[in-house]
Amino acid sequence: MRYHLLVPTDFSENAWSAALYALKLYANKPCTFYFSHAWTFLNSGSRTHISQSYIDPLIEEAKAQLEAVKEKAKQESSNNDHEFETIFSFGSLMDSIEFANKEHNIDLVVMGTKGATGAKKLFLGSNAVTVINRVRRAPLLLVPKKSRYETPKKILFPTAFNRFFGEEIKRVKQLAELHLSSIDILHINKKETLSEIQNSNLESLKTELEDFDLNFNWMSDYNSKAIAITDFIKDNDINILAMINYEHSFIENLVKEPIIKKLGFHSKIPFMIIPRID
Rank of each mutant, 00 (worst) to 15 (best):
H104E: 12
H104V: 04
I106L: 12
V110G: 01
G112Y: 01
T113C: 04
K114H: 13
K120M: 14
L122Y: 13
F123D: 05
F123Q: 10
F123E: 08
F123N: 07
G125I: 00
A128S: 09
V129Y: 06
T130H: 08
L141Y: 01
L142Q: 00
L142A: 03
P144M: 07
K145D: 07
S147M: 07
E150T: 14
T151F: 06
P152Q: 04
K154E: 07
L156M: 04
P158Q: 03
T159M: 02
F161S: 03
F161W: 00
R163F: 09
F165H: 13
G166M: 08
E167W: 09
E168A: 14
I169N: 05
K170S: 15
K170D: 15
R171C: 14
K173P: 05
K173D: 10
K173V: 14
L175C: 09
A176Y: 06
I183V: 09
I183F: 02
D184P: 02
L186N: 03
H187K: 09
H187I: 01
N189M: 14
T193K: 10
L194I: 03
I197N: 13
I197F: 06
Q198E: 13
Q198N: 06
N199F: 04
N199D: 09
N201T: 03
K206N: 12
T207P: 05
E208A: 13
E208M: 05
E208R: 11
D213G: 08
F216M: 05
N217D: 09
M219S: 12
S220I: 06
K225W: 11
I227Y: 06
A228E: 03
A228F: 01
